[in-house]
């Protein structure tokens, strides 16, 4: 696995966007006292994140049911006093969501084994990409091609090693005689250029905003 610096950084911009921190211990206590407002607060805090994570891992099918199941498990565990460390409520919620995902994958694998496949058949799962999404993917890829073609061969080699060949930053810096700063600068410039080209394309098409 690649080594990485801090995962969470208090110095990142958009401080105005930082949410208020709930008092987890207080929230858990209030839920255990059957406070309906506390339950509503729990719902507001977690369900959007649960939905995002479940959709990302399992797709949009049956998403509402899965989110509902995860939320119920968390809420019921709190009510029954099964949460030993209320301050670790986030970690507990994450564990529940991951178990839900693992359970779904296990049952999908079991179902697949029990099906009769044709000889020489290769299972092809539903990738969930409709024609519009595929077209958008291609456009974004074309933007990235433009970004890569506009930089030197060496810089292109560096980015290809990182994004396609899955080499680590450390390995690339060592092989290509780069400092960490130079590597990060190259990546951030490529990302900025990608964003610029994307915005330029959107403005040319006069995409309406609703």
């Amino acid at each position: 696995m690649a080594s990485v610096g801090p995962v969470i950084d208090e110095n990142l911009p958009d401080t105005d966007a930082r949410p208020q921190q709930p008092d987890w211990v207080d929230l858990v206590n209030r839920i255990q006292r059957d406070d309906p407002q506390a339950m509503e607060e729990l719902y507001q805090v977690f369900t959007r994140g649960m939905r995002y994570y479940l959709c990302r891992q399992l797709g949009p099918q049956d998403l509402d049911d899965r989110v509902h199941d995860c939320f119920l498990i968390v809420a019921q565990a709190i009510r029954r006093g099964e949460l030993r460390e209320p301050e670790r409520l986030m970690g507990f919620a994450r564990t529940i969501v991951r178990r839900q995902i693992a359970g779904h994958i296990d049952s999908a694998v079991t179902n697949r084994r029990q099906q009769v496949d044709l000889d020489t058949s290769a299972p092809v799962p539903d990738g969930g990409m409709n024609p519009e999404a595929a077209a958008m993917n291609r456009q974004q890829e074309q933007l990235a091609v433009s970004v890569l073609k506009a930089i030197s061969r060496r810089d292109r080699e560096i980015l290809t090693r990182f994004y396609l060949d899955e080499q680590s930053q450390e390995q690339i810096c060592q092989d290509m005689s780069l400092t960490e700063t130079q590597f990060r600068l190259l990546k951030s410039r490529a990302k900025a250029r990608f964003g610029e080209l994307g915005k330029r394309r959107l403005s040319r098409r006069n995409v309406p905003v609703y």
């Binding site: 801090p6 990142l12 930082r18 709930p22």
Partner: peptide, 20 residues
């Protein structure tokens, strides 16, 4: 912690499936 945000590096490695 709740107040802080994810770093770009961490998000990128997570998107690449290479975060520890």
């Amino acid at each position: 912690t709740f107040e802080d945000h994810c770093t770009d590096d961490a998000l990128e490695l997570y998107a690449l499936g290479r975060l520890g």
